[in-house]
Design a protein around this nucleic acid. Structure first.
Lengths: 157, 157
DNA sequence: GATAAAATCACCCAAAAGTATGAGGGCAAA
DNA sequence: TTTGCCCTCATACTTTTGGGTGATTTTATC
């Protein structure tokens, strides 16, 4: 506890200690070269040191830790032309499967369901089922909406 | 400056002052009711007060405010920074009219022909005619292709 | 004012897209 | 092993989209 207070305010205590030591040094010099009858000054020095410490302690103890919170909003842009990073978080938030994403990409490329089917070597019905699932998962009604949303949330470049 | 330091650390100074006042009060009582020969204690009290103040001042002066920096990463989809510049060259190379571009934009937004018609206060047939013209001018077969191409050549953000 | 382009609308037909439902096989986690 | 998801395909039906043609009105331009 006390140690922590010391650690956290090292500089202050060092200043205080230095001050006290300086004070003592002066007093000691005085004692050595002048008179010996300076008990009063020594006493005053001790008091000074003690009360300096008291002051420091008071200040530390009572000062609410001045915490300055600096909030920096760092905007992360996504440049479609440059390196596209697939938003995987959004991808499995929606529960999209690999195949569905594949279909979605071909949709966005402007292919018809029939063309997609041919491209993926499956039947038209399969693509229809996929697209229905895609729309359901993405909560849209049309492929154009799916494309728009997919681009917006980073599923597609 | 000094005033500001006081204002910012009101509580501490009040504590310090209270302490000092209490000290003086005791001393004063001592002076009144006991002996008058207590100049030393008064002196010690003054020293105590002064050095308490010094300690407080030191602590306040030297305490670095703890700065907490919170960086919030805010994901911005698309490119809000790079404002979209419409490719007017491509626009009249294709011979696209204002209305057609308007329809194209709503298409890209994911609206159905019926919704576009409602939005533009015209009939569904009108939108069909427009879209046919658009596809013809853009040399595409489907709205999805039109959207893809429009984005690619800068007709649409 | 004539002319051309644009915008509007209608009708019909065909193709494509989308909905609903069911079903079978594969694969991995519980 | 069961359960759940994925992928596949089918059938039937509805809606949307696209193509073709033709027509009227508005707007801009020479």
């Amino acid at each position: 506890m006390a140690f922590q207070i010391f650690r956290k305010n090292k500089t202050i205590w060092l200043y205080g200690a230095s001050l006290a030591i300086l004070f003592f040094l002066l007093k000691w010099l005085e004692l050595r070269f002048v008179i010996y009858d300076h008990a009063f000054e020594v006493y005053a020095g001790v008091i000074a040191m003690l009360f300096t410490s008291l002051g420091i302690w008071l200040a530390i103890k009572l000062t609410k830790p001045t915490v300055e919170t600096v909030v920096i909003e760092k905007e992360v842009y996504r440049h479609p032309s440059t390196h596209f990073m697939l938003n995987e978080r959004a991808l499995d938030e929606l529960g999209m499967s690999k195949r569905e994403l594949e279909v979605l990409q071909l949709m966005a490329a402007g292919l018809s369901n029939q063309e997609i089917a041919k491209q993926l070597f499956v039947s038209l019905n399969t693509i229809k089922t996929h697209s229905s699932k895609i729309f359901e998962k993405m909560d849209v009604q049309r492929r154009t909406q799916a494309i728009e949303k997919a681009k917006r949330i980073g599923l597609i470049p």
